[in-house]
Structure formats: structure tokens, C-alpha cells
Computed example of a mutant assay.
Amino acid sequence: MFHLHQIDPIALQLGPVAIHWYGLMYLLAFGAAWWLGRARLRAGRFGVSEQAFGDLMFYGMLGVVLGGRIGYILFYGYQQVLADPLSALRVWEGGMSFHGGLLGVIVAMWWWSRAQGKPLWDTLDFVAPLVPTGLLFGRIGNYIGGELWGRTTDVAWAVIFPSGLDRAYAPEELQRLHAEGALDAFARHPSQLYEAFLEGLVLFVVVWWFAAKPRRRYAVSGLFALGYGVFRFAVEFVREPDAHIGYLAVGWFTMGMLLSLPMVVLGLLLLGWSRRASSPRVA
């Protein structure tokens, strides 16, 4: 029998205030990035004070949240926002784009680097190893929230997401139908967990290991961009495309694939440029 997803998206209810798991995952993501970044600083990387690094994290946080939300609206949710403009503010319901968040971070890093007199690519090379842990926690948040699930399948670890059914059911009826196997046709790949493993854990191990030694400028950022683009493109084969967008071409090409291809190209270009850069840098 397939697993029935029944996780309450609210972690804690304090009177009228609801603390969502999705928000807690963001706190864990920023906390992990802070801890890892300080470890790199103390290892002699980048050469800035912890106060300056704190400013960098603050700008990065703003870039992730604003860029991720704006990117989601532009790439995926503009029709929803046109129908309900206030939905753009309800970030606790999910709806964040990694590609939009990445652009937001780049703008934030550029602003900080300009103020600190640092080359932008040195900042990005320093930050790149910190990003995959954020992806790990973010995808776990997607799974807990029962959003961005995969395509239907009959693999043994498939999950039935109530939000992926043809209509809403009362909890008791949902349990009965699940026990009878009546919902098996709606079992889906838990693609959020695939992404958490590949884009989060695996990418973190690879990029962190690669950045453990001084590398030429562009190399660390290039490896991150290439790894993310490849992993995201691969998972898109089992991830359900957004219903209001569907497939863009040939019955399998999705918006996620389209947005990941520039990451692959950029990663290859950066790795190529790094071979022409000067001596290895402490980044």
C-alpha cells in the first residue's frame, strides 16, 4: 500500500498565530548557511570580518525571499496573482522559485560586494557552498506542505498527496478510501525528496569538498551552477509540471527544464573561464 501524506503544514499554533513548517525550514536554511559561512571564514577564506559576513547574510536573505517570490510569480504564478493579488504576499503557503531566488541573491551579493570593494565573483564563489543546504531544507518544506509533487507512478515508495486528488475528501473518508486502495491511481513520485537528496545533500557534499581547497575564480560557482542544473533537469522527468503551464514542448519538456538549461550552460562557461583565471584564490 502506498503512503498517504497527512502532515499538518502548521508546526505550532499559538492562538491566532500559526507557525508553518515551511517557515521553519527557511530558518533552518539560513541558520545552516550562517554556521557554514562562519566555518569558512575561520578557515581563512574570503578575508572579511564576521560583522561584514552578517551583513552579507542579511542581504542574501532578502534576495532569497524577494527574488524567490517574484520569480515564482513571473515564471509560474502570474495567473493566480492576477486573479488574487493578495496571494503574492502569502509566502507561508509556499510558492518560491529557486531561479528567482538565485537572481535575487546575485543582486544582493552585487550590492554587498560593491559596498565592500570585493569582486562579485569572489563573493559568489564564497557563498556557493552554503546554498545547497538551503535547497535541502526548502525541498523538505515542499514535501511537508504537500506541494510540487511528482508524476503518478506505481513505485513502492510512491506517496498519495491529498492536494493531488481530483477533489477534497473529509479525513475519515480519505482514510477509508486509502485502506480500500481506491486512491492508488493517484500515487506519485515524492519528487520533493529526490530534489532534497540531489540538489541538497549530494550537491552540498560535492561543492563543499571541491571548495575545501583554494580554487581559481569562477570554479566553485561554476560547479554549483552545473550541478544544480543537471540535477534539477533530471528530476523534472518525474516531477508534475504546474497545471496551469503543463508541458512546453514534445510532451515532456517543462518550465523547470527550460530554466535549468541556462544553469548548465553558465556552469560550463564558468568552469571554462576558471581555467584561464590567474593563480588559485582563497574563496
Rank of each mutant, 00 (worst) to 15 (best):
M1E: 02
M1Q: 07
I7F: 05
D8I: 11
I10A: 13
I10V: 15
A11I: 07
A11T: 06
L14I: 13
V17P: 04
Y22C: 05
Y26T: 07
G31K: 10
A33P: 08
W35S: 05
A39R: 15
R42W: 07
A43D: 14
A43K: 10
R45C: 05
G47Q: 11
V48K: 13
S49D: 13
E50Q: 04
A52D: 15
F53D: 02
D55Q: 14
F58K: 02
G67I: 04
G68Q: 06
Y76N: 11
Q79H: 12
Q80T: 12
D84H: 09
L86V: 14
R90A: 14
R90M: 11
R90K: 13
W92R: 03
H99W: 00
G100L: 04
L103S: 12
L103V: 15
V105M: 13
V105I: 15
I106V: 15
V107A: 14
V107M: 10
W111K: 01
W111N: 01
W111E: 00
A115F: 00
Q116G: 06
D122G: 14
A128I: 08
P129K: 07
P132V: 01
P132Y: 00
L136D: 04
G146Y: 07
T152Q: 15
I160L: 05
G164S: 11
Q175T: 11
D184F: 13
R188V: 05
H189S: 10
H189P: 05
E195T: 10
A196W: 00
E199Y: 00
V205C: 08
V205P: 00
W208H: 12
P214Q: 09
R217P: 02
Y218P: 02
Y218S: 08
S221Q: 12
L223W: 08
F224P: 09
F224Q: 12
A225Q: 14
G227S: 11
Y228G: 10
P241K: 13
D242C: 09
A243P: 11
H244P: 00
G256L: 00
G256P: 01
V264D: 05
L266G: 06
G267D: 10
L268S: 02
L271W: 01
G272H: 08
S274G: 09
R275W: 03
S278D: 14
A283T: 15
